[in-house]
Each structure stands twice: as C-alpha cells, then as structure tokens.
Design a protein around this nucleic acid. Structure first.
Lengths: 127, 127
DNA sequence: CTGTATCCTGAAAGATACTG
DNA sequence: CAGTATCTTTCAGGATACAG
C-alpha cells in the first residue's frame, strides 16, 4: 500500500445546491461581519451604525442591512416619529451566528503573524 | 434608567487595519471553502481538484490556489516528471482553519430551514 | 497534465446628489 | 434622520484558445 491512494472526498459540500454553498448572511458581502459586530451590543440606529463602520456609504449600508434582514439575521423597527427613527437589531437567529463567527475571528487574530509571514515568504520566492 | 443608553461597541474590529478585516484565506473568494474541503482528506493534483469542484475553470482554480498558497494555507509541490505532476495540500496552518470553518458550516446546515423561511417571509411582506 | 493569455460579463462597492 | 437615485469603478469570475 505504498501507492498514493486518493483519500475519499466528503460526500456533500460539492454540489451547487448544498446548503453551505449559500453561506448565508455572509455571502460575499464586504461589510456583514462588521455590521453583525456593531449590533452585538444591542439595537442601533442607521446613523449610529455609520460611525464605527468607517468609510461605508449610506447606500451600501442600506443594501447590506436589507440583505441581512432578508436572511432573518437582523430586524428593522421603524418608529413613526419626527424626525424618523429606525432601529436595527440582531434577531435570535442572528445571535446564534455570533459563536461561529467568533471562531473564525479568533483564528484570524491568533494566526495573523504567521499569515503575514507566509505572504512575505511568498513574495520573496516569486522574484 | 429607562433611557435607551447606547451599549458600548467592541473596541477593535472597526478600524480598517484590524486583523479580522483581512479575514485571510476566506477573503471574498467564492471557491476557497470548497477547495479547503477537497484538500481535507490529503494532497490532490490539479485535475483531481477540478472534478469535485463542478464548474470551476482552470483559470479560477489556479488563481484561488495561488491566493491560498500566498496566505500559507496551501502548499504546492511540483514533481519534475513528464507529464508534469503538481500536488496541492493543506499546510499545518491551513489545517487549523478547518475547525472554525466547521463551526460556520454546521451553523449553515442547522439553520438553513429557518433562513429560507425568513427569505420567504421577507418576500411576502415586501409586496 | 498544468497551467497562462485574452477578452468579456455581472454584481458589489463607491461617489455624488437629492427626497420624505 | 434615514434613506433613494444615478452614475462610475472595480474586480472576481467565466469562456475560449493556446503553451510548456
């Protein structure tokens, strides 16, 4: 058995219809992770979100929030006042995502140095 | 204390230089998660990867692999044979990412139904 | 077999101006 | 305050052909 027998592949995960492919809420959007973090501490208004999310435009924030609302991770509450007030908050479903997100964030922090070193080494090797 | 005092925001995570912002390896790419999974069982050749990754083009696979190699998550070993053989494998660093990835994948599987329901409810409410 | 070289498309993001 | 309406930019991704 010295032959390199190809190890078996995981069964699912490879058809386009697999749940994980939709990697919901996180799907390719740039700001979703940070928005989730901003809402972690409680409900926030539109303008309150814009402050910590440096550089985000109103348009992109509105689009992102609507996508997250659509996926059931964020709720939007409109108060019929003047001037208008709207509050965004994590739903119970959204909160359950914080744990898995932490796992990835912690990994990023813990391995950032090694990762940057790898990038530098790659640069050096290429030239 | 009936006033809605804005809860404090997490300290970091919001400046553009924060480690987590680079969310390495995963950064916005469409195929990285699946490629990681394909390599989980052991080293694989370029053409072996193309099979389970239905629909990926050679160009995109090559680009993705190079990005992952650059981040130190994947190693590339070239064998000077004819015809040429190249094997890709997860590095030790890459392997440590599998755990956090599992957390998100498991979440996706566990909450897919609720998520799809939320999308339908959103559709209904909009019209 | 393992890629690269072009060209093209589409979706997200950014800039700017304006509205209820 | 909380967005929308346009327009432009950017870049990952896809299609196809070709190369070492």
């Amino acid at each position: 058995m010295t032959e390199t027998a190809p190890a078996p592949l995981p069964p699912d995960l490879f058809d386009p219809d697999c749940p994980v492919q939709s990697v919901p809420v996180l799907g390719g959007r740039k700001w979703t992770w940070r928005i989730m973090r901003c809402l972690e501490g409680g409900p926030r208004r539109f303008s309150e979100l814009r402050v910590p999310l440096t550089g985000i435009t109103a348009k992109v924030l509105a689009e992102s929030l609507r996508a997250m609302e659509q996926d059931g991770a964020v709720s939007r509450t409109e108060y019929p006042e003047n001037p208008p007030r709207v509050e965004y908050a994590l739903t119970p479903l959204g909160r359950t995502l914080l744990g898995p997100m932490d796992a990835v964030c912690d990994w990023s922090r813990a391995n950032l140095a090694e990762l940057l070193a790898a990038r530098e080494a790659f640069e050096s090797a290429e030239r």
